[in-house]
């Protein structure tokens, strides 16, 4: 393992140019900037339609210094498979292949090809940046939109179903590495991607990427919102390595402190949750308490 990175030891070269087309305060742009540093230049990226397509620039201008293949919405993991197969067949070595898709492209339309590739054990890193909705098409609900969130197609009651647990689905494929991280913790994100690079087989990394226009908060709070998601226990940072689950980073610290920030602080910062009544918020809190109660039980020192 390389020594723990600090903000001073991250590679200096920027693979994402400034002045790209991401919205101000975009969680993805932090994640992509740091993520590409971790993946390194010898990487081929596969991208389905998503905010990332827009971030990467409109023809003939590219915002990233990476070979990048834009593919159809459902085929990210199949395309990453194809890149790998071609590299193997042509005897090209030392190139990392990464799929980088949004939550809709992963949890909904792309799940079949992702599941197929994971079952085949394709040797790539699949990264899902989760901004909890179809933000690029104007904030519609996705499989990973949390309960209660107002979106443009759940405009009155908010989403009435739970967030789909994609890391758990990927873990059920018994792949060697599943990790969750958040754009608010760039070093955690960097470490996990760097770690995934060294593992053979299918690696899945889920990144919570707060979205100012989609979630309804001031762009300057992207890091704060991301941190609150973790500190309230709403979103957990963990790794599942060789089927072993372990809380990591800021979530691990919560375990040590044994104290969560009330989830209302997270929910009330965001306009998308404005329709939630006190009882709804209490329900979310109850679910968090239950999950974290189990963690406290499981990881008694």
């Amino acid at each position: 393992m390389p020594s723990k990175p600090t903000i001073l030891t991250l590679p200096e070269e920027e693979l994402v140019h400034p002045g790209n087309r991401a919205c101000s305060g975009c969680g993805l742009s932090i994640a992509y900037r740091i993520g590409l540093k971790a993946l390194g230049k010898d990487t081929i990226v596969v991208v389905p339609p998503s905010c990332l397509t827009v971030l990467q620039g409109l023809y003939p201008v590219a915002a990233t210094k990476m070979p990048s293949l834009n593919v159809t919405f459902a085929s990210t993991a199949a395309a990453a498979t194809g890149v790998l197969a071609a590299l193997r067949s042509l005897g090209k070595q030392g190139i990392t292949v990464a799929g980088w898709a949004g939550d809709g492209g992963t949890s909904d339309i792309g799940l079949q090809s992702l599941s197929g590739a994971a079952e085949r054990g394709e040797d790539f890193i699949y990264i899902c940046y989760d901004n909890e909705g179809y933000m690029n098409t104007g904030v519609q609900r996705s499989g990973t939109t949390p309960r209660g969130a107002l979106t443009t197609n759940t405009p009155v009651f908010g989403k009435t179903q739970d967030k789909k647990n994609v890391p758990a689905i990927m873990s059920a494929h018994e792949i060697p590495y599943v990790a969750t991280t958040c754009s608010a913790y760039p070093l955690d994100l960097y470490t996990k991607i760097e770690k995934a690079k060294a593992i053979r087989g299918t690696k899945y990394i889920h990144i919570l990427a707060p979205c100012p226009p989609g979630w309804g908060y001031d762009p300057k709070y992207t890091v704060k919102v991301g941190k609150l998601a973790v500190e309230t226990g709403m979103y957990d940072l963990y790794e599942i390595e060789n089927r072993e689950f372990r809380l990591t980073g800021a979530s691990r610290k919560l375990l040590e402190k044994r104290k969560l920030v009330p989830v209302s602080e997270y929910l009330k910062m965001q306009d998308r949750f404005r329709g939630m009544k006190d009882a709804d918020i209490e329900d979310v809190q109850r679910r968090i308490n239950k999950r974290w109660g189990a963690y406290f039980e499981m990881f008694k020192e």
Partner: peptide, 20 residues
Amino acid sequence: IPVESEHSALGVCIAASSTG
């Protein structure tokens, strides 16, 4: 590559061809 669908079959070919 024994893929899980025809959509992916051509998806693999598209990416493989794009990689040379």
